[in-house]
């Protein structure tokens, strides 16, 4: 019980300590207005391209994509902010379990990502007068939580690259673009070159986007169990890889002396 309480306390404190957008004004701009303007852009674009067909699905899928701010840039801050503040070496040399430490740091971003996505959906519903069946919301919420968990797992893998490379912005922007490109939120995956379509299978959010569109547009839940299980498995694999990379980076830092790489 004490370990569980410590886990949640650590999640909240590290979010406050490491995530730079907690000032109300900054949060409003970065975490609310910026994602909503992105949503508005894609909503207007798909409405124009598809003449309003399946608009609710596109808007809901784009709302899910708003979690990128947390799953990429937030997860990056889990490591890079710590290093920037000179606290990474202090944290890494404590006797705490590093796997539990980084999972608890990720938790706040899964929750924050889900909040932003829900906010985006509400905005889309109000602005475009969409109607989504009430019983779809719970399923959507579960799908989104799992998808964001999976995206945060990939975000943490990329964040660990920052333990070797000081070029964190290159990695984070590349991943954010890839998630947008390969999720299939704004066009069917089948219009992409075959190799990109294959790559999309290994990218988080792709299944979440597909399920979101299926449920919102057609009330189709038939693929939910299969795709959701795959997405959860993908997320778990991403987290396991990232935690192994952190253990390896810690070892390498002890050999090479690079933990406080600037």
């Amino acid at each position: 019980m004490a370990a569980l309480q410590r886990f949640f306390r650590h999640s909240v404190l590290s979010y406050k300590a490491l995530f730079g957008w907690l000032e109300p004004k900054v949060y409003l701009f970065v975490m609310v207005l910026n994602p909503l303007s992105q949503l508005l852009f894609f909503a207007v674009l798909v409405n124009y391209v598809y003449g309003g067909e399946g608009l609710a699905g596109y808007i809901a899928a784009n709302a899910l994509l708003l979690c990128v701010m947390n799953s990429v840039f937030g997860m990056m801050s889990v490591i890079t902010s710590d290093r920037g503040m000179g606290t990474l070496q202090l944290v890494m040399s404590t006797p705490s379990n590093k796997a539990s430490l980084f999972i608890s740091r990720s938790l706040a971003h899964v929750v924050n990502g889900a909040f932003t996505a829900v906010l985006g959906l509400a905005f889309g519903i109000l602005l475009f007068g969409l109607s989504i069946p009430f019983d779809a919301f719970l399923s959507l919420f579960v799908i989104w939580l799992v998808s964001i968990f999976s995206a945060c797992g990939l975000g943490l893998i990329i964040a660990t690259f920052c333990l070797w490379s000081p070029s964190m912005h290159l990695w984070s922007n590349l991943l954010a673009s890839l998630l947008l490109l390969l999720s299939g939120a704004n066009y069917p995956l089948s219009v992409m070159p075959a190799w990109l379509e294959q790559l999309a299978v290994f990218i988080p959010l792709t299944r979440g986007v597909r399920l979101t569109k299926d449920i919102v547009n057609n009330g189709d839940y038939s693929q939910m169990t299969t795709l959701l299980s795959q997405e959860l498995l993908l997320g778990c694999v991403f987290f396991i890889i990232s935690l192994l990379l952190i253990v390896y980076a810690e070892y390498l830092a002890r050999v090479k002396g690079t933990m406080d790489l600037e």
């Binding site: 004490a2 309480q5 410590r6 306390r9 650590h10 404190l13 590290s14 406050k16 300590a17 490491l18 730079g20 907690l22 503040m85 000179g86 606290t87 202090l90 944290v91 404590t94 006797p95 705490s96 430490l101």
Partner: peptide, 26 residues
């Protein structure tokens, strides 16, 4: 030097944070 602390946290929260990392009982 001035780094090596979480500037956005209070003094108390900085210590609470590291107390958890060192598994000091609540």
């Amino acid at each position: 030097g001035e780094r090596n602390l979480y500037w956005r946290l209070s003094a108390y929260d900085n210590l609470a944070y590291f107390a958890d990392l060192y598994k000091v009982p609540r």
